[in-house]
Every structure is written in structure tokens, then in C-alpha cells.
Design a protein around this nucleic acid. Sequence first.
DNA 1: AATGCGTGGAA
DNA 2: TTTCCAAGCAT
Length: 315
Amino acid sequence: MFSRRDLPALHRSVIEWFDTAARDLPWRSPDRSAWGVLVSEVMLQQTPVVRVLPVWAEWMARWPSPADLAAAAPGEAVRHWGRLGYPRRALRLHAAAVALVDRHGGAVPGTYGELLALPGVGSYTAAAVAAFAFGQRENVVDTNIRRVHARAVTGTALPARSLTAAEMRLAADLLPAEPAESVRWNAAVMELGALVCTARSPQCGQCPVRAACAWLAAGRPAPEYVPKGQAWAGTDRQVRGAVLAVLREAEGPVVRDVLLSGPIDLGLGGEGRLSAALSRLHRLGAPEEQRGRALAGLLDDGLAEETAAGIQLPA
DNA sequence: AATGCGTGGAA
DNA sequence: TTTCCAAGCAT
């Protein structure tokens, strides 16, 4: 365990490493807005940076302010979410934009509590936006930071299965007292987890804190549990994704039977993105009951709506 | 507290 | 090929 006396040296070494190794990401640019930071943080939830980059740029060009997104139909947010995954995030970001216009004069608020009240913003995202967009001293704890703390301080290969109070306390104890330094520290530890102290094959030889790492000192012991993998093939989630992909590519309503029944010749000649999405859906070979369940889920979540003409993204 | 929720690149 | 897992949130 680090003693408080060692903390300044620890902070210095990680932040100095960050100064040389940090990626040049657009949401870290001096001219990015707080809105840009919020959008990036939501897009980055469970999603790799390289896939977020192009979508974030398109969103910033299309909807440079909360009011711009709030003025669009929620279905447009879902459509332009593309294949980022977890499309409910797009819907919640739209709802957040509406809330910003309604309650905050169209601006992103700067306090943890106000941010936490927004749709799709949880404890991590609220802390991250308050810290990175507003320079506040916040206890930012994401999966990267948890893993770095687990290894370097606690000496285990992985953090606990779920975020524990002990982890939050540890992170709070490690946080530099000075706000500007705390922001650098949060970003630096997160970057260290993303680039060096990675989940699969950590590059301990490049780690600025290898000399003090409890996990390395213990001989890199194996994880104490095996994370259970997420099933995918044959799941409702897979079918949901394929159904929504069809709605995303469609300009207007899609009749229910096209989604629920076997392949139907729409006279599109097999060309185009809509046809490709329909082919992918039908090639899954999911039972009609499962497709119905997936569609019901999408409707229930507000990711789709049913009109007399058929199923479409929410208008 | 445990689940459900997408997607695709890399190991 | 299959498996892992990436700046979580809501319920």
C-alpha cells in the first residue's frame, strides 16, 4: 500500500508519463465545448475510442450545441448513432439535450449533481464531465482506473466484479488535493489503463509505476475469478441489433411483416444498405417469436415506434 | 445485486 | 474459429 508520503512522487511520475504518451483526442482539444465532452463521454461508455472518433466528429458538425440536437427528432439521434452499439445511449443523449434546453438555458451544467440528473449520465460520466470540461476535483472511477488501482495498489489482476465502496474510497485517497492536478491525474491514470495497464496483455516494461506496482511485485498473480463472457449468437440482443439496423437504413416506415417474416422481395434488386440490413436480419434465422420479442423491446424502449404505415425510428 | 443492453477489432 | 472486452447506465 502506498503511504501518503509517496503520493506526490506517484502523481508526478504518472502525470509526466501522460505528458509524453497521451493520445491527441479531439475532445481533449482546448477548443472543444463542454457539450463535446459530454457527447464524447456518453459515446465512450463501453465503446473503444477508435470507433467513437468519426461518429463524434459527425455529431459535433451536425449538432454543435445541445439546442441543435434537441431540435432534431429523437430518431435522428438513433440513426446517426450508426453502429456504435447500445443505441439507447443516443436516445438518452437526445433527452439530455432537451433537458439542457429546458432546465439549463441550453448549456451543460458544471456540477456533479446537476450532471448526474441528466438521462444517460451516471456517476462516472457526471464526474468525468465535471472534471474534464469544468476543471473540478472529482473522484473519476472508470474501468481503466479501477484496473490500475487493483494492480498497482491492491495487487490483484482485476478489480472487483462490481464497483465497490472500497474502490471509491481508495480512488478518493489517491486523488491529488489541488483541482488542476486532480484533473491531470484522472486523465493520466485512465490513459495508463487504456494504453499500458491493459486488461489482456499489460506492457509492464513501459509502465511509469512498475517499481511500485503491488501486482508486479507479487509476480502478476492470476485473476481470482473468471469474468463471464457475454453471450451473443442467438440472443435477443443480436436480433434487436439486426432489427434496429433495418430501421436505421430505412427512410420511412417498414411494415411489420417484413421484420417478422422471412425474406420478402421488395423489388430493390438486392442493392443498397437497406437490402443488406434486411438480408442480415433474415439470415440470422431467428424464430418469428424471437423477432417479435426483439421488436417489442425496441418499441418499449422508445427506439422505435409503430404507425399505421409500419415501424420506424421515433419521430 | 444481478441483468440486459450492441458492436467489431484484436488475441 | 471463438473468445474477450471497450471512458457504464438503468432497473
